[in-house]
Amino acid sequence: MSISLSRPRALAFSLPAIIAILPFLGACFYIFRFSISADKGVIDGYSIQAYVDLMTPFFGRSVWLTLKLSFVATIIAMILAVPLAFLLTSLKSPLARRCLTVTILLPLILNLLVQAYGWILLLGPSGVLNSTLKGLGIIERPIFLLFNETGVLLGLIQTSLPLAVFPIVSSVRGLSQEHLEAASSLGASHWRTFVDVTVPLLRPGLVGAASIVFAFNASAFAIPLLLGGRRVQMMGVAIRDMISPLFNWSGAAAAGMILITLTLIVLVFASWLVRVTSEEVRG
């Protein structure tokens, strides 16, 4: 090869980006260091007191709620994302494909406040859903879907859906039509083909997508803050409350470390699963 990238040049090319990401790495380290600080307000000495103080039923409930809501939201998002990815890859008209792409992608990128407004208008006591149901005479009193787990769940599903759809879309693109036809020619019905061929071949993509969605949901902050109010204390909100009214910095840092550890475990487990399954399907 006449052009091989020399080591010094490769380093020079990478350096600006590494500098740009340094504050992020610094922040990661800082959180870790603060979580084992002996003082609640400044970094001073070493102690695991902050972690010990977290062993309360209140924080335990928050962890459990976070895991539960993230898990349910991930499952539902995946169930919706797979058909959406199929639809997106089957659309022939570029205009239709573009409209669907924008519709799915918008919730990830659009200002979370705007989306929270949307859910409040939809689910609020005088919102679209309640007005419609009342107008149809199905209910007499508004049902409360906001500032409880239902509202948060819907918000999580909506904002994490694009993170599920687009990785699946790229795995679906790698799936050959002939594999499906081969199964069919051997006698498999649509459902049978889905179970025996489509899902196994998509499995690495599905696991990867699900793990990212789960991590995203577990660390959600704006959605539970705006749609759950004080009542749905997912970890993100609980951590914020530790610093904002309580000024318990080391406690917040320790809780943050626990949240990071939880998401990392899920991600590492998923990437291990992807490696195992993709070795199996390497064609």
């Binding site: 980006a17 990401i21 504050p23 992020f24 610094g26 922040a27 990661c28 800082y30 959180i31 603060f34 990212i212 991590a215 995203f216 577990a218 660390s219 902050f221 993100g236 951590i239 914020r240 610093i243 910095w249 917040a252 840092a253 943050g256 949240l259 990071i260 998401t263 991600l267």
Partner: peptide, 19 residues
């Protein structure tokens, strides 16, 4: 460089604030 994508934003916010 994918880490910031999966790193909890709240923690990142708090960490940067702490610094």
């Amino acid at each position: 460089f994918t880490l910031p994508l999966v790193f909890p934003l709240v923690i990142l916010g708090i960490a940067f604030l702490l610094i």
